[in-house]
Design a protein around this nucleic acid. Structure first.
Lengths: 378, 378
DNA sequence: CCATCGGATGTTTACGTAAACATTACAGCG
DNA sequence: CGCTGTAATGTTTACGTAAACATCCGATGG
């Protein structure tokens, strides 16, 4: 109950009481009273200094772990801090230091696993480096929206920005980037203009396509992602290239929008094609919808049709059948984003270039050799 | 190409050039040079004022849309702002105003749909109100971790905090909440001490259980969530109560940890029970695993076993079979969180109390009457 | 015994903004 | 014609912190 009562509602500021009992300081009382501002909820360095009997500069030194402070003095300051419940004012700190220790993350949506997992990794890595993460989702990816987002981010307190989306939408908008803000981009091929960190889309795609071809499939169909996405584009391009290089004819591309529902619709279409024995879905959600469509149409997976996904979401192992898929290391992508953006801020790294995070094929139960090996041939 | 070159790497500060050409101001040059700081990337109000030939206070008035400014002067200031690429310094602003216009969100994980969707809604609503959202995921929900998170949040710039987790973990930790920071909690029953916004767990659960009983099932099994979660606790309690009230005997509780994998494991167990004809899963992911387990064990859904989930994740409609589930309005929860926390900050609302967001039963294809109506009876 | 050095601490100042207060100029009015 | 009121703008100051610089004091060495 003691604990439960320590809610924000019940908190009384220890700073106030302590200040009341601190009777020295001979100067005019009205000044003191005025100096205590409209709310007397927070203690400043000056308050701590007064209580500890030192200068505020010494408090600052203790607060920042500066070396040249006598151990005894340090303890006195720390104890005063504790008594007053002192917390450094980050606004003042940011103003003085000229940096916010905050990274902004701009993204269209948190509906896709990839964005979320990347974001989570970014937040974790950033926290580890002493940075906070400010989130700014932009609901509708129009150019105006994007601009709006950035404007807000500028006025907010960020030292750097990580963009989780196709950056050409940024280029296309008339955005004035604040000059000192560093940008790192995910899901883009703009490595010649930006610093880009991304999953090795091409590598993952090749692995997937090759796996299906190695099983003996004549060709591989592709259930692609939406047009705006670089990842979708890259996966589709590589899928086509990989087939062509191996001497196979790429069938027409079928597009979805990343959702399971779109995968289902596309799946109904693919299920109707007798010669479709292998499908590479651009993400696991669409693969899920695809599996349902195939099931409804009586095409067994993997006996009749092999399906492979991309992402390796946690649920993929519980699909019917468990999905063979390309594993993305989102955590690593997020980590590298933070690393890259901090390096840029410290002018330690190159201004641009692309870093790719390798993928890994996870074999489960949704792929198998085609049914009648050499059934039909074009 | 013009656009592409407007990257952070290529940006030159318009402020610098303009300042260079601003030759008036007769005072000592060295002072000017020093005042321009180590980096000359940002223009301050003083710079704008100088260029526009007004005082910085007038710039401030224009910047904040203050009324008493001559239209001509206003235009001059705006034009100077544009020329210098002026952006208000939010650190200085926050320091002066005593508020950050930022809401902190603390959460254990972004792995669950609910947290993410709520977070997204919070961010959107907050942005709409002119607030930023600072994210702080805490990897492992130990008490020390929680305390660490809050310490960091305090030192960061937040005016309020939304906690997406069971708040008793907070109570149990020795956290000193900064006195002026308002807290709103999701996933808790601590409405007597905090402001709580949550989905109507009980209502949703009752709807689900009643639906299955109405179909004629003798009883309903429950695949519950992990112990630490209030939502899991609440759903389990209500499930038990609803059964008892209807004169049915609640079977033993089977627990998972929200993941599909845990649902699968639990599902294997449930599939072995002949008398299990209806299962209420505490979330959709576990329902997915459950479906797989039942399928593997040859128990058809919904012919042999009915399954109902909770959450209504987008993928639920693509499960095999499409999942009947309880729809949660996460967007509304997030929106209400922001609303509540802002109201608390403005002292317009009550300090505590619980707001529940209603659920909705979404009927799909995973539920049906039990196989042999009056087969066995306890 | 005094100059010097360096550790410990204090004082001053600036960061950029905006509230509070001060000043100016001009219109309206008796 | 001078007084008053008000709109427009300028000046001063404080927000809380930390860099830069200043001071103090005891120890060390010549």
């Amino acid at each position: 109950m003691d604990r439960a009562s320590r809610t924000s509602a019940n908190v009384t500021s220890p700073a106030t009481e302590a200040a009341e009992t601190t009777g020295e300081q001979g100067d005019a009382t009205p000044k003191r009273a005025r100096a205590r501002r409209r709310d007397r909820t927070t203690a400043s360095m000056a308050d701590v200094a007064r209580l500890a009997g030192v200068s505020s500069q010494t408090v600052s030194r203790v607060s920042n772990g500066y070396a040249g402070v006598n151990e005894e003095t340090r303890r006195a300051v720390l104890s005063a801090m504790k008594e007053l419940g002192y917390r450094p004012n980050s606004a003042a700190r940011a103003l003085k230091r000229g940096e916010f220790r905050t990274i902004g993350v701009i993204t269209f949506t948190l509906a896709t696993t990839g964005n979320v997992r990347t974001l989570e990794a970014i937040a974790t890595s950033a926290a580890h480096e002493g940075y906070a993460v400010t989130l700014l989702p932009v609901a509708i990816p129009t150019q105006d929206e994007v601009r709006g987002a950035f404007t807000r981010l500028e006025e907010l307190a960020v030292d750097a920005v990580i963009v989780i989306m196709e950056v050409h939408l940024l280029d296309a908008a008339t955005i004035t980037l604040p000059p000192h803000v560093q940008v790192v981009v995910v899901d883009s091929d703009a490595g010649d203009h930006y610093t880009v960190v991304d999953t090795d889309q091409a590598g993952g795609t090749r692995t997937a396509v090759r796996h299906l071809l190695d099983l003996g499939h004549q060709t591989v169909w592709h259930l692609g992602g939406p047009e705006g996405s670089f990842a979708a584009q890259r996966r589709a391009d590589t899928w086509r290239a990989a087939l062509t290089e191996a001497g196979h004819v790429p069938p027409p591309l079928v597009r979805g929008d990343w959702t399971a529902e779109s995968g289902y619709r596309a799946g109904l279409e693919l299920a109707a094609r007798e010669n479709c024995t292998a499908v590479f879905a651009a993400n696991d959600q669409m693969a899920l919808g695809l599996l349902r469509a195939l099931h409804e149409r009586g095409r067994r997976v993997p006996e009749d049709v092999s399906v492979i996904g991309f992402d390796d979401i946690p649920e993929a192992s519980s699909f019917l059948p468990p999905l063979t898929t390309v594993h993305q290391d989102f955590a690593e992508v997020g980590r590298l984003c933070v690393e890259a953006v901090l390096r840029k801020m410290r002018r330690e790294g190159p201004e641009r270039g692309t870093t790719l995070v390798p993928t890994r094929l996870v074999l489960r139960a949704s792929t198998a050799p085609p049914p009648g090996r050499d059934a039909e041939r074009p």
